[in-house]
Design a protein around this nucleic acid. Structure first.
Lengths: 353, 353
DNA sequence: CTGAAAGCGCTTACAG
DNA sequence: CTGAAAGCGCTTACAG
């Protein structure tokens, strides 16, 4: 038992394979690189035998030389927002399909982030994908100085840092304003989540701008503070303290909206959509559940996924940096469910007022 | 621009550090191994200077020699069940805290699993953590022959394969039976999820056995088939086709229970808890939301987390295999919420019948 | 306690 | 088109 576990079942190496085939190590190695200069029949022979013996180049040895790791580091913080597991699932599958491996770092507490990112960076990932609301400036510096490109998903980088993939949140906010106003809502409210998040800021900006353009009063704002169910719920409870009569609500995202609806019901007995229309953002699976039936703006996930995989591939395989830093896609068409109701007064309804 | 990106900003290596300190490479290297023979003051000097220069041993070069990678491979399939993101978050944080990195493989489609696991295994993780319902036998063989230990989380391995960490699901099922019977329920139903999953099988076994022990008729069974909201919802709809009057329902897990409650309401107008008591399993965050208020059996996550980190550490740092293969913890105390109601008839209530 | 040397499994100029 | 050789950044017997 003195031997090391991993050595017991020795893995086959280039040397073994070369000897087996009566070729040089160099030739065998070349067979695995599409661009390498090697006779096609030779390559075929090598690849076939490799498959038989179960040989795979050792990625550690490979990376030591090539400085490429085929690893994408992924920083996540907000797995309680169902949007992210949904995104991760798709992203993982696609990255896997192009041969990239994903190494995960959780950044639940802001102070954990640095250590987590350091750990990640020591594996020299070809790129970092940030699914978190925040990346500490320390962590960002580390990436910079290590030459590791960052992709910020669903969040525009603060100062033009790194690459960004997101949907046009402002346009989404405008769509919601138009929708609510077109369906007869006149007293609007925005339920704000994490104040520094670009998604939050932009959605509000679009919503507010369009509301004013359409000649209504500036929307009220309720600060939930976080992108969580609990924050939304608390904001819903706080509806009680709001003076004006609100008839249309836009929440920073779906999970906040879902919490908000329940909080409003619990706190002030407000019923959705009878007393209040509520709109979310993202179109997470839960938004379609019968218990919520949330009207929402869907993220253009298909586009965003294609962009991120394309970018990841470029960043890990070519030496030139991609020129386009920001990919911003129009949101999908609003999905109208049962959390909103038209308040347009037909002539018959005029008795009301 | 002909140079490679990663080479531009050269990372500091042992050599650099050794030269800087006027020591040999060997000595510098030893400073990073607690068990290595090295004068304590020397070690201190090295470590300090390393921190200043931002030196970290290159894990790829390290692994090439030590055959240890400090990588835990994680196979996930079921991120739509909120239980898993919750588990992942905690597990990630804890593994990070002990210096392990997590490499992720998604196994959404059964046929993707093999390729994903292969990719993962080529990085020679010290161990594999399986959070998925299923690991193909091909994948398992690969682990075996590569000497990579597997830990199955929340699922007992089929044929004594690998290590298992789970809660005592059968005991949980028994608790639910006792609880429902004690609170006056007499006509019980089990909503079954994925038939091959050990969690599903054991929870049912315990529930059924205890029901019979208590002298009631065997519980009815409704096959949802999957651990998903949608499957639970469908099962709820199917309540309509059930002949007998059911008053107490145990669902394979929380997400199924939540779907079930809504399906039962939508399909047959059955109200929880007035017409029906419903119990879940896991205690996911959502179970506590006002819209669900689900009575449930909590998993002993604290215990399970400690066990998995302990096991991971043993497997990645020592050469001896841990002796205990199965860690099975008693579930937590049932959490009684509003999805269940006592149906014990006090003398006053006897008018009802 | 420290250093010189071998070697982990690869890739890639450099010759031929 | 193929092979011999150097070297990626580290660790670890082996001497001293």
């Amino acid at each position: 038992m003195r031997q090391r576990r991993k050595q017991d079942s020795r893995r086959v190496t280039v040397k073994d394979l070369a000897k087996d085939l009566g070729m040089s190590v160099s030739t065998v190695s070349r067979a695995f690189y599409p661009d390498a200069v090697i006779a096609e029949p030779t390559r075929k022979t090598v690849l076939e035998r490799a498959a038989e013996l179960g040989y795979r180049p050792n990625p550690f040895a490979q990376s030591l030389i090539t400085k490429r790791t085929q690893i994408a580091g992924m920083v996540v913080s907000d797995l309680t927002n169902p949007f992210y597991p949904e995104v991760m699932t798709q992203m993982l599958a696609r990255l896997q399909a192009v041969g990239m491996n994903v190494m995960l770092a959780a950044a639940n507490e802001p102070d954990q982030t640095d250590e987590a990112v350091d750990l990640l960076l020591s594996y020299q990932p070809d790129l970092l994908i940030v699914l978190a609301v925040t990346l500490s400036s320390h962590a960002w510096e580390k990436c910079e100085q290590g030459g590791t490109p960052c992709i910020f998903f669903n969040r525009l980088s603060a100062n033009g840092q790194g690459f960004g993939i997101s949907c046009d949140n402002e346009m989404g906010g405008r769509q919601v304003a138009d929708f609510l106003i077109d369906t007869g809502h006149r007293n609007l409210l925005y339920v704000s989540a994490f104040p520094d998040a670009s998604t939050n800021v932009e959605r509000y900006a679009g919503f507010r701008a369009r509301t004013i353009e359409r000649g209504l009063a500036e929307p009220e704002v309720l600060e939930a503070g976080l992108f969580t169910y609990e924050a939304g719920y608390q904001a819903g409870l706080n509806m009680a303290h709001l003076k004006g009569k609100i008839d249309g609500v836009f929440c920073a995202n779906d999970i906040v909206a879902i919490g908000f609806m329940e909080g409003a019901q619990a706190g002030s007995g407000l019923r959705v959509p009878d007393d209040l229309s509520v709109v979310g953002f993202d179109d997470i699976t839960m938004a379609g559940w019968p218990s919520h039936e949330l009207t929402t703006v869907p993220q253009p996930l298909e586009d965003m996924m294609e962009a991120i995989v394309g970018l990841a591939l470029e960043l890990s395989n070519s030496s030139a940096r991609p020129s386009q830093k920001i990919h911003c896609f129009a949101p999908g068409k609003m999905i109208i469910r049962n959390s909103t109701r038209s308040r347009v007064q037909t002539s018959k309804d005029l008795s009301y007022a």
